[in-house]
Every structure is written in structure tokens, then in C-alpha cells.
Measured scan of single mutants.
Amino acid sequence: MGKSNSKLKPEVVEELTRKTYFTEKEVQQWYKGFIKDCPSGQLDAAGFQKIYKQFFPFGDPTKFATFVFNVFDENKDGRIEFSEFIQALSVTSRGTLDEKLRWAFKLYDLDNDGYITRNEMLDIVDAIYQMVGNTVELPEEENTPEKRVDRIFAMMDKNADGKLTLQEFQEGSKADPSIVQALSLYDGLV
């Protein structure tokens, strides 16, 4: 993909415009910024974590950033290329609610087996709590990752089998306004 070129080839721009919710001009602008920050044309896990640390200076986002990195890194080569970056950004910032929920499901399904187990969710929720640090005051019933996961599973795990399917996750998330709101945070920002 033209590693350190400051412009993408027209056919690449066209393809990314088809695969995302961005215009050709927006794709070019994002590429310019991506190459400025990642001259090699790729972003590794350490660089990704560094970006998260800028956004969450009062907590430790390392663990959460690693989980997000793994979802962005579609081809699992340990690096995020621009096409992976822009497609994930498109879903998280401008995707439909169902697209965002499928993306979030992939984030929580750490072993990619098609289910979110209690332990997988606990890993992610714990990482989120570490990331936000003491900057967020949580209600008593959610002031630990374990309590939050218990509440989520009580609401979403309809067949009580200890794991969530994509359908259970989507339906449960849509029924909880706070989850829908959290997924909409990026709307309109890009």
C-alpha cells in the first residue's frame, strides 16, 4: 500500500471509500495523518498503546488498548495497516448500531470462538476500569469489574449457560440505554 507515500493510489482510495462510511477526501485526510504518525505505514501494539495513554492519562489503558489493537489487526500480523485502521474507525465512528455491536462482540470474544464467556467479559471490564482509573464515580452495584459483569450476565445471558452469543449480546445491549450510549460516543466526531 505504498508504505511511506503521502498519497494513496486512486484505486485504493476508491476501494476504501466503498468499504467504509468515509468520502474519498476523508480517506485521504486520514491517510495523511496516519502516515505522519506512522511513517512506516504500520502501527504496532506499543504505538497503539501510546495513543491510548494520551487519551487516558489518569488510568492505565495498556490492557484495553491491547484488546482493541487485536480487533483492529484483522489479518493478525501484529501490525495495523491503514486499510485495517480506516475500516475499524469507520465501523466504530459511523457504523450502524448492529455493526458497532458486532465489532464490540469481537472485542469481548477474546478467543474468537463465537461466545463471550464470563471470564472474557471480566478481562475486558477489568481493563476498562484500569483505563479510566479513579476518574469515573461508579454506583455501588457496579464499583468492581466483578459486580459489573454479574449485572451484565444477569441481564443478557437469557439461557443461563454462562456465555453470551452474538444475538444475546446484541439484544441485551439494545435493551440497556447506557450500552447504546457508550457505543454512540464516537458518532459525529469524525
Rank of each mutant, 00 (worst) to 15 (best):
I116V: 05
D161G: 11
A104E: 09
R18A: 01
F169A: 03
N119E: 08
P57V: 04
K25M: 15
S178W: 00
R148T: 00
W103F: 07
R118T: 05
D109E: 08
E15W: 02
L138Y: 02
G2T: 05
Q181S: 05
Q42G: 08
S184R: 06
D37I: 00
K100N: 11
G78N: 15
E140A: 03
G41Q: 14
I124G: 01
T92C: 10
F55T: 14
L16R: 15
Q49A: 10
V91E: 13
W30A: 00
T144P: 14
F153Y: 13
F85R: 00
K25C: 08
V149P: 01
T17N: 15
K63T: 10
D77Y: 10
S184P: 08
V125T: 11
S83E: 04
Y31Q: 15
L138M: 00
P39K: 00
N134G: 05
V190M: 11
K158H: 06
S93C: 05
D113G: 07
R79E: 13
D77T: 15
S184H: 00
L110G: 12
Q42E: 10
S4C: 15
S83F: 08
L110I: 06
K100P: 00
I51R: 05
P57A: 06
I152D: 05
I152A: 08
A104T: 06
V13L: 11
Y21V: 07
G47M: 02
S90R: 13
L97I: 03
T144Y: 01
D73G: 06
L185D: 07
K19R: 12
N134T: 04
S93A: 14
K32Q: 14
T66G: 11
P177M: 10
E81L: 03
G33K: 06
F67G: 06
S4W: 00
L97N: 07
K100T: 14
T17H: 05
W103M: 09
F67C: 05
E168R: 04
G114Y: 11
R148I: 07
L107T: 08
K63F: 02
G162S: 01
M121I: 07
Q42M: 12
K76W: 04
G133M: 11
I116A: 01
G41A: 03
G114A: 13
A154E: 01
E137A: 04
R18Q: 12
R102F: 15
S83I: 07
R102E: 15
A154M: 03
D109A: 05
E84G: 09
Q167F: 09
K53I: 01
K3V: 04
T62W: 04
R151P: 04
K147D: 08
F67I: 09
A45S: 09
Y21F: 11
E140K: 15
E140L: 10
K63Q: 10
F34P: 04
P139T: 08
Q87L: 06
G2Q: 00
